[in-house]
Design a protein around this nucleic acid. Structure first.
Lengths: 345, 345
DNA sequence: ATGCTCATTGCACACGTTTTCATTTTGATG
DNA sequence: CATCAAAATGAAAACGTGTGCAATGAGCAT
């Protein structure tokens, strides 16, 4: 009555298109599948009529028989984190180009992932799953998903990850040693003596690996191991932790933060509350190289994990796995390097 | 061979559970539907066996018959924008609690949404669609989705939105007049004379409405209409635009930015490049109140749109629409208010 | 004309659910 | 014990698609 489209909620089906085009329903199906054999002119006519009728194959029905949902599940603890939102954005764009849609799930804030969420996600039958939360056991996740193979991000040798040979998962290996080595060398070059490590979440594997690697490299170069303060990757916690650090003892002359946002918190605490100069009094280095790091207020020197490379590697993993479901564990490798800006000297 | 689960890719089905429990498949279906009539002890037994077999109803198969996909589509131009990522995060959390999953799509960077993307999304049959991109015609979108009803965010009276009475959509009405009035009053109170409006994207409806409203209120209060500079909601553009503003003419003594991130760019340009003091030389006010606005480096005075309220309103719209698909247009209203921090005086 | 290959076509079934609808069981009431 | 309403149950029919299989037709060499 109101518009041109009276029967709202009535979706055009392949049957309708078939009737309209005087062909069988199978022909319509084939028209939308490029490798199916169908007379070209017939295909064109069908596609034209389909367009007129606003028809698109129903993904749910299709996935029921093809066993491909064209969904990629992403489990994220905090979408607001600049690093994660960057990755979601780039991944979604890249996957969209390959015909996959992003299915977003929010994990608990404490980086954990409960059974309920997994069960819930499983029902949607994602073709692949990327967990931004690290501390979910590989055995659990792999056993849980039936056709999808999860992807894990492993840092350096990943000794902490343990041997999960019983379950199948693919790996993105991040070699952060290079970047950290450059960072420590720079700090040492500018005469830093007492460096503090402003950590991320204790449960975070990346965080523990960073701490371990930094300690190792400092010692190798004949420097003191770092003072370690725990954080949770947020600005506020880093801010307070920095105040604490400079209250009790005489502090540090360099701060290595587990992520860029934490470095921002440290810088603001030093400058606006402790009256110290960055980099003259205290040098600061971050991790990630998020877009905000080049903002003039911070202009942060940081260890860069290249987003484009990272996303490309992840997409490659997903596509390879989907093409050859029976393959053994796949691995992609990624490097890191220092980006020098204004917070060291 | 390798693990306990030999037949990977073989998902447990309702039939299997039924056989295992010596009941019909229908009983299994009912066991997972709380309002279906089923003997309690029987239901418990079925659910127990289902858990043992790691069974969950297949969402695709279910949605095929119930005509509910339990998917909410979100079309986002830039996931990295703090404001949008906040909203995605909160919406996903809230919807997840209601049993819906977030289906994320990336629109073109220029705020446009092409037919291809719409067609693509349509195939997934989302139960509802939230467009963070405003300049897609309501007629197009409504006509395109078959069962979902889109939600539009309208600012104040939304005169620019035009009369789309022919198509059905729901409205979230944001009354930004209050917040802007408080902001202008504050600026006037601190003696501002020449205020500039540092705009967002030209295509953005919110941006045009903000400019219109600010101009109107300034004039009502006997002040000069603002100098208007276009931007695109990003830090970098706002930074350069501010430099330009103070190069040609003698600038402004107050800047009203279309969003917080833009305000950050303006502040950094003033302080780090032009050697001006905020708030002594120039006062700055933003829009949104994102988490970064209370960071010490900025400590921004801004017009707040409450995220919690906004998300609650959106979820209410979605649920009401899903419960009563045949209702006329639904509307929710939202206020704004000024949050006073350190960038005015 | 005959045989052969190969592309094209359509029938019927499968995918895993929910939902009528008719039937059986239960439990309460007279 | 008989009666009746209500609750519990299962058979069968959808939902919209892809695919194996057999049938058809065209093209070409013999």
């Amino acid at each position: 009555m109101t518009g041109r489209n009276d029967r709202r909620g009535a979706r055009a089906t392949a049957d309708l298109v078939a009737r309209e085009a005087n062909v069988s329903r199978v022909a319509v199906s084939r028209a939308f599948n490029p490798n199916a054999s169908l007379k070209p002119e017939k295909r064109d006519r069908i596609l034209q009529i389909a367009r007129d009728l606003n028809y698109t194959p129903d993904v749910a029905a299709r996935s029921l028989v093809t066993r491909r949902s064209h969904l990629v599940g992403m489990i994220v603890p905090d979408v607001c984190s600049p690093w994660e939102s960057q990755e979601i954005d780039a991944l979604t764009t890249a996957l969209q180009a390959e015909g996959f849609a992003t299915l977003l799930f929010k994990a608990k804030a404490d980086f954990s992932m409960d059974q309920t969420l997994l069960t819930y996600m499983r029902g949607f039958n994602p073709d692949s799953v990327i967990a931004f939360t690290e501390n979910v056991d590989a055995d659990v996740l792999t056993g849980f998903l039936d056709r999808a193979v999860p992807i894990y991000v492993i840092y350096d040798d990943g000794t902490e990850f343990g041997d999960k040979s019983s379950s199948l998962y693919d790996r993105l290996l991040v070699r952060q040693r290079d970047g950290i080595e450059q960072a420590v060398a720079l700090l040492q070059g500018f005469g830093a003596q007492r460096v503090a490590y402003l950590g991320g979440k204790r449960q975070s594997l990346a965080n523990r690996e960073r701490e371990r690697m930094i300690t190792q490299i400092l010692v190798e170069r004949g420097m003191q191991p770092p003072t370690v303060i725990d954080g949770d990757y947020t600005y506020d916690t880093a801010y307070r932790a920095t105040l604490d650090l400079f209250r009790v003892e005489d502090g540090a002359d360099a701060i290595f933060a587990a992520n860029d946002v934490g470095a921002f918190g440290a810088i603001d605490a030093l400058r606006h509350d402790l009256g110290l100069s960055v980099p003259n009094d205290v040098k600061v280095i971050g991790f990630d190289d998020i877009p905000q790091s080049h903002w003039k207020a911070y202009n942060l020197t940081t260890v860069r994990i290249d987003l484009e490379d990272r996303v490309r590697a992840l997409v490659r993993l997903i596509l390879r796995r989907l093409r050859n479901p029976e393959d053994g564990p796949l691995t992609e490798t990624l490097g890191t390097r220092l980006v020098v800006r204004g917070t060291v000297g």
